[in-house]
Structures are given as C-alpha cells and as structure tokens.
Nucleic acid binder design. Sequence first.
DNA 1: GTCTTAATAAGTCAAGTGTCTTATTTGGAG
DNA 2: CTCCAAATAAGACACTTGACTTATTAAGAC
Lengths: 221, 221
Amino acid sequence: MTTDQHDNLSLSSGALQLVLSAEQLIADKGIDGVSSREVARAAGHKNHSAVNYNFGSFDGLIEAIIDYRVRPINQQREVLLTALLEQQQQPTLYALVDLMARPLASELLRGNGESRYLSLIAQLLSRGHWRELFLRNRSRSSALIKISELMAAQLADTLPSEIYNERVRLLGSQIIYSIAEWDNLQHKGQLALDESSLEWRLQNLIEYAIGGLTANHNKRN
Amino acid sequence: MTTDQHDNLSLSSGALQLVLSAEQLIADKGIDGVSSREVARAAGHKNHSAVNYNFGSFDGLIEAIIDYRVRPINQQREVLLTALLEQQQQPTLYALVDLMARPLASELLRGNGESRYLSLIAQLLSRGHWRELFLRNRSRSSALIKISELMAAQLADTLPSEIYNERVRLLGSQIIYSIAEWDNLQHKGQLALDESSLEWRLQNLIEYAIGGLTANHNKRN
DNA sequence: GTCTTAATAAGTCAAGTGTCTTATTTGGAG
DNA sequence: CTCCAAATAAGACACTTGACTTATTAAGAC
C-alpha cells in the first residue's frame, strides 16, 4: 500500500491541480462559497475558464473529486476485508466497524493532511442537490456491501429491523461527521493529528459505535 | 408549554419574517448559497436592502436566527431539568441524554415543521467562520452546564478523561447531526415525522448514545 | 391637523460570476 | 522542421451581489 493509489485516473496534471485546490477551498469556505474562477485562480491558472474547460461545469469538478477519492478508499476496503476474512470467517463487530472507518480516517494523514475529502463528503451529504450528486457518483464497493451483510448477520436477529436500520444509519453518519470534524479541527490548528493520536480516537469511535449498535432496545409502548 | 415561547424577542414582525424565510432558504440551498437580496425577496419585500436595514449584515441576520431559536430551546431545557430533579436527585443517564436531545428534536415538529433550525446549526458547526459565529452567539444555558456535570458524575470515574471528553464530543455531534438529518429528510419528503415516529427515533438515538458513552474502553498498548 | 421617526422602496456602483467565444501558446507525432 | 491538437489565456456579455445612498410611504405622539 505504499504505491500511489491514484494512477489509472485519467486526470491530467492540470486537472489534478484543480481537484486539489477545489478540495482545499471547499473545506475552508464551503461548497457554495467557492466559484469556478476562484478554483482556477487557486490552482495557479490565469485562465478563468479552466474548470469549465476540464470538467464542463462546477458539478463536473465535484464529480471528479469524488471519483478521485472514492476509488482508493474502496480499494483499501477491499484489501483490508480480504486480509480480514483470511484470518477469521466470522469477523468481530470491532473489525467490521474498523473496516468502515479506517480508510476514511486514513485520508486525514494523506500527504501531510492535504486531502480535505472528509470535509467535502460531510458537506455533500448535508444538503439536497449535493447529496444526490454524491450518492449518484459514489460507486458502492463490493467490500462495503459485504461488510454490511456481515454486520447484519450479527445484529439483525437481536433488533427489530426498523431499529437495526436506523442504528446503521446512525453509525454511517457518525463515522463521516466525526472524522470530518477531526479534519476541520486539524486544519484550524485546534487538533494535532499524528498516527497515534488518530489511532486512539479511531479506537474510541469504534468502541462508542459498537456500544451503540449493540445497546439494549427497550420497547416502550 | 403551549404559549408562544418567542415573546420577549424584540423582533418586529418584518424582521421575524426575514428570519423565517432565511431559515428556509438556508436549509434548502446552503448558508453560502443564499444572498441577502434573496432572503428579502422570499420574505415578500420589494426592498432588497431589508436584511441590511434590519440586521446590518448577513452575519447579523444569522445571529438573529440563533438568538431567536436558542432561547426557547434553553428555556425548555431549564423546565425539563427542574422537573426531572424534583423526581430524582441522581437522574439516569437516559434522562440526561434525553434532556439534551429532546428540545432539539421538538424543533422538527414546531409549526408543521417550519423551523429549519437544526439544519442551520449543522451547517454552522461544519465550518470556520460560521462555527465561530455560532459558538460566540449561543448562550450556554445553565441547564446544559448542569446536565454536563451530572453526566460527568456518572462517567468520569470509569473512563480516562481524554476518552470521556472525546465521547462527550461524539455525543454532541451525533445528536445535532442526526436530528438535522431527520430534518433534511423530512423536508424532502423522504421521512414522515409525527410525534410517535419522532419518539421512537429519539429513543433509539438515546439508547445508541448511552451504549456508546458507557462502552468498555480497552487500553491497547 | 402637523411633525417626526420607523419602515419600505428604489437607485447606484464596483466587484464578482458562469458561460460562451476567440486568441495564443505548447508539446509531441510525423 | 512542420503541423496539429490540446492546453492555456484572454475577451465579451448579461447577470447577481453587498453596501451605500436617496426617495417615498406609514404610523404614532402631540
């Protein structure tokens, strides 16, 4: 996992710089607070139509960012899942939640924290148009599906399906928003994240999540 | 609690309409995707400077929204806490988390769901400038402080303080982002929220949160 | 009634924006 | 080297925005 995971991406170096600059700007100023021209400027262009030229539109740019980041994350999930299933056919809940969260958390350490992807996802998921664009563009990896199934196998019996589904939703939101918050705090200098501090935070998040997933459900009329 | 909780607010009816329209627009289009002029238009003004006239600036408008919504929420917390402490001096964790979440969740039912305040908070908390503006303007209610203390009394012993603090942060984020998500889904017609469906979701959220807060913490090297 | 002040409307201006179009430059393929 | 397509730059246009300024209207005190 030391090689660059962004190879086969059909992004010219110019387009790549736009993607990276856009990520930064959006994390800082909000997806609706950033203009195409601003992105082009930040990417070192005098050409104010660079975004339009490379991606057709601002939406196209966002889709490119998603595509650029989602692939390696899913890829990492596949690798980790395969390794895990070789060890134990019935992985623990801990291992499964770890598998969901870790590849996202890893983004925070990528290239001295220059990936602001988590902040972007959190913003995309928060509102109408962008949420739909994201859901349309993330390719659900087979790993994630398999993880869901393994998790359901351990929980679905003990909980009413309505409750189980809701808790899985809570889990998904919590993972993304929590890690996104770490990202934002880190980039405001209010949180120092290195491997070890990320590790205990991640561990704690997983423990919290498992506590939540497996909590007793008391039916109250 | 049937009387209007927005009395002593020093908002003229014109200003109030601006606040309400702004809330709606921001929930739909994002805080950075809405202009002062647009808010004025949506509030029925031909006067495109209405926001500037009433609040001085867009930031002033946001502060007015926060002020308008935070008061009754804190007020409700005070009332509920007082009632709770009359029943039992050492309230359960369940009651305490309930106390944190319920006044926020209630917003979703207010006036046929016309308060989009949760969506706003979630957006404000997500990014730089707005986060700071929010933190500057929410007046921390004495109830919330008391709730924190009561919670700490039950948990701080069993967990390392670093872990405890992090879990409280997780709790806070989860409450706000989850309820905000209900808000967004509700207003896209993807979630039907009445009192009873809100109730079981809230109950489940609390159960999840308590499971998380009290989860075992395993020190790993 | 007049007067005064708050509220609303409307005008203005420089700055920024998306999109489309038209140069100009650059880096290979032949 | 020539030539051509891709990349970059720059122009143009209609539109929106925030902030400030200047009418105009409404409403209450006296």
